[in-house]
Simulated assay, not measured.
Amino acid sequence: MMVDLRPFTGIPAKAILSRRSDFAAFYQVIIENIYSHLLSSIREGDVVIDAGANIGLFSILASFKVKEKGRVIAIEPEPNNLKILKQNVELNGLNNVIIIPKALYDKPGKRVNMRGEGVGAFVSEDGEGTVETTTLDVIAEENRLRPRILKMDIEGAEGKALLGSINTVKYLELIEMEVHDEENMKQVEEILFRFKFKKKEVAIEDLRNVYRQFIRHPINILRIEAANRFSTTKRVLLSRINGGKVSLFPKQIVYYRG
């Protein structure tokens, strides 16, 4: 289905949602607004990296923020995500979005596989690779850009991705990423603390925003939920039953220069 983002974001944009994972991404980025801190910090003319762009929802929002003078680099290797990402960029005429159909990793030119799909797709080095890797340093150099803001959600490859981003990290001022385990956390913070970043953990899921959006736009939410077989309603109810308990990982963390 096609969803109008204006009621939820104030931005005159639309998005195509085809699979259950697309709806999950929609609820995280648009309804729960998990990147609100990052989006509120984007300025006109900024270069923003969307690593793990999925179907492009964050890229759409960032595109309207940076406007014509800025650029959004949307990195997405998973073929099904990539297809819808391209459709959403074309649908909204986003000429300031550059799509990179590769996996972000520690070195460019490797061949890796994508396991799973949608929001849960992740990089695997097992078997004969079908997807080529790249690094933020290569992307920044090839496009002659100095990114100021980085959003990263790449399902466990965040440590390796930063190892291939040393020259780019020195230009970054604000990062928000989902970190998936202790090993990645150690790699990530080893690099970022070297560049004088500080960190702040944020809620990976804030159901209060879901409630607010439902109160403001009940008909729109119900229409979307019906198309998604009320999956999010079930998840919210389950979360309430479990008392809102979450596991130790993944963690949503904002890194910023003090």
Rank of each mutant, 00 (worst) to 15 (best):
R212N: 01
T130D: 15
F8M: 00
K160W: 01
S36H: 10
E190T: 11
L150H: 09
M114C: 09
S247G: 13
F64M: 02
I204R: 15
A227S: 13
V112E: 13
E201F: 08
I166S: 07
D153A: 01
N81D: 03
T168N: 04
I55A: 14
E225W: 13
F230Q: 01
K251N: 01
A24C: 08
R6I: 03
N220E: 12
V47C: 14
R19I: 03
G45F: 03
G243I: 08
A25K: 08
F230D: 04
A74V: 08
N81G: 10
I34C: 12
K110L: 15
L39N: 08
F214N: 01
R111M: 15
I99F: 15
D126T: 13
G120F: 06
Q252D: 13
L174E: 00
A13G: 12
E44R: 10
K234S: 10
Y35D: 12
R240E: 04
K86I: 15
V47Y: 01
D106P: 02
I16W: 15
N242A: 12
A227T: 10
P218D: 08
I99W: 14
Y171Q: 04
K198P: 04
I16P: 12
A74W: 09
L238I: 10
F195E: 08
S63Y: 11
F122Y: 12
D106A: 02
G258T: 10
P108H: 08
N113Q: 13
L222P: 01
N167I: 00
S59W: 09
L136W: 06
G159F: 00
E176R: 00
I221M: 14
G118F: 14
N220A: 11
L104Y: 06
R216N: 04
A103K: 12
I166M: 03
R19E: 07
P12F: 05
L172W: 09
Y211K: 06
E189H: 03
A203V: 07
S239C: 07
P250G: 00
V202E: 11
T168K: 06
S40H: 13
R257D: 03
A25V: 02
R212D: 08
G156W: 08
K86C: 11
A15P: 03
A157N: 04
R20H: 03
L17E: 08
Y256R: 03
D126G: 11
K69F: 06
L237E: 02
E128N: 14
G120C: 01
S18V: 14
R229T: 06
F58Y: 13
K83R: 15
Q87S: 15
K251I: 01
P108Q: 14
I11Y: 07
Q187M: 15
A51Q: 00
E44Q: 09
